[in-house]
């Protein structure tokens, strides 16, 4: 770890603000994402937004969402992987909020320098997400549209924070471990302690968030 010995005031000044945009349309059936969302709500300097609760009729407030983006340093999409993509409200959110002139284009630099990552749960096993596996592509490959979204909006794209085999994670007691890693990740992001070099290039960010550190 490379934390500096600075005063409390200085430290709080260096705290990054994290925005978790959570999308899950059937939360009564959620076993992974709802607990992760609750964890995020409990951490200081993290703003956790339930998009389906905010906009049940998809009537997204563009102004408000853009301001929220401006007010934060790190943007996280938290969602279950649906057909190798996001639940529909996150796509709607992208289509509406990431406007030309705001997020991209000649004068669209509002997101410049921010960091972006996806926190996903996938039903398939990790082995399935390989070029020679059942799904034929790695998870990073499948998320390339979002990677390119980050690129064109001048954000730094970090590896996805992924839980595979999520349908049986509860039975296999893997969820609490994953939640710990999630909390670690969020805390590191807030404090700016994440190794960016590794975070950008690793396959799964969860592997970087073990309790013992790197």
């Amino acid at each position: 770890m490379n934390s500096d010995n600075k005063s409390d005031i200085d430290e709080s000044k260096h705290n990054r603000k994290v925005l978790v945009l959570f999308a899950h349309p059937a939360q009564t059936r959620s076993e992974v994402n709802v607990p992760l969302f609750a964890d995020a709500q409990a951490i200081e300097h993290v703003t956790a937004v339930d998009l389906y609760a905010e906009y049940p009729d998809f009537n997204i407030d563009i102004e408000r969402e853009q301001q929220q983006l401006v007010d934060h340093d790190i943007i996280i999409f938290l969602y279950p992987l649906y057909w190798y993509s996001t639940p529909s409200i996150l796509k709607e959110w992208q289509d509406l909020v990431l406007e030309y002139g705001f997020a991209y284009g000649h004068e669209g630099t509002a997101l410049k320098g921010k960091q972006f990552l996806c926190a996903i749960s996938a039903g398939g096993k990790e082995e399935a997400y390989q070029t020679d596996g059942f799904n034929h592509f790695t998870i990073r490959q499948l998320l390339q549209p979002l990677e390119q979204m980050a690129s064109i909006t001048h954000m730094t794209y970090l590896a996805p924070f992924a839980l595979f085999g999520s349908r049986t994670a509860q039975e296999e007691h893997r969820i609490s471990d994953h939640r710990r890693k999630w909390t670690t990740l969020l805390n590191k992001l807030v404090k700016g302690e994440l190794n960016m070099e590794k975070a950008m290039n690793i396959e799964n960010l969860a592997d970087l968030c073990t309790q013992s550190g790197e």
Binding site: R29, P87, G123, G124, A128, F134, R167, T168, E171
Partner: peptide, 24 residues
Amino acid sequence: DLHDKHSKMRGWTPPPKGYAEKLE
């Protein structure tokens, strides 16, 4: 829809547990 998590009501019903092995 309200009470039965695995009802026959449609809408984002997750695949059954262990579906991944079966698929493969």
